[in-house]
Amino acid sequence: MSLQVTNISKAFGGFKALSGVSLEVPMGALVGLIGPNGAGKSTLFSVISGFMPPDEGAIGFDGRSLDGLNPAGRARTGLVRTFQVPREFAHLTVRENMMAAAPGQTGESLVGLFFRPGKVREEEERLAEAVSEVIRFLRLERVADEPAGKLSGGQKKLVELGRALLVEPRLILLDEPFAGVNPVLIGEIMERIRELNGRGIGFLVIEHDLEALTRLAPQLYVMDQGRILTMGAPDAVLADARVREAYLGGAV
């Protein structure tokens, strides 16, 4: 049981963004995906999460094909993505951002809202508690009732992670969780990811900051120019001549 990406190709005009990419993330694993800018990492995330159809290839999750599902359908299987540039609901508070993410709310239907107010209130109370817990876990208490648009870049990344947690995820696709985040907060975010992974939630983390990711993920895939270069434990991967060439342009 795993996320299974098989032979994915995607071209934009003449530019091959992805050529025959395959990778596998076992359930509950913490896997990194590194590569220089423009390697195709974010494109791969868009294909996996259903925002972009691939030209070729197949995606399977937990033994089931995702190929016919739209982004929302894929998220409902427990495969939830975040975005490289945070996409917070800017005018909603941090708390509301997370509450909006929870599935199966009676009050999201107009009928439920007007004709089952008791049930809606009860669900809202329960949801508010669950959200408070996530906010505490992510250390966002101080900004919980601020509009998310006013937060710093790093805090927004945490809000995105918090929202993903409310969806009851089994595997989270994190797109550059450390980009533009101050070093102290990077350590915090890493700590949270490890804790969540300890609770059984899997992660596939994109990062082009090699150093940060090698500290976090016990297993790495390396991409360059739309292909998977290699995979393995961080030490082995970093020792690989092809990886050094991709990153350092053959200078080493």
């Binding site: 917070e88 609901f89 005018h91 999201e108």
Partner: peptide, 28 residues
């Protein structure tokens, strides 16, 4: 006012703020 204060209101405001992010959270 009931709608604004409700889960339904939360979702439509989320659509206004960022539709793709809402899709990524499993809502159409």
């Amino acid at each position: 006012r009931r709608i604004v204060a409700s889960p339904f209101g939360r979702v439509i405001e989320a659509i206004r703020d960022n539709e793709e992010a809402l899709q990524a959270l499993g809502k159409d």
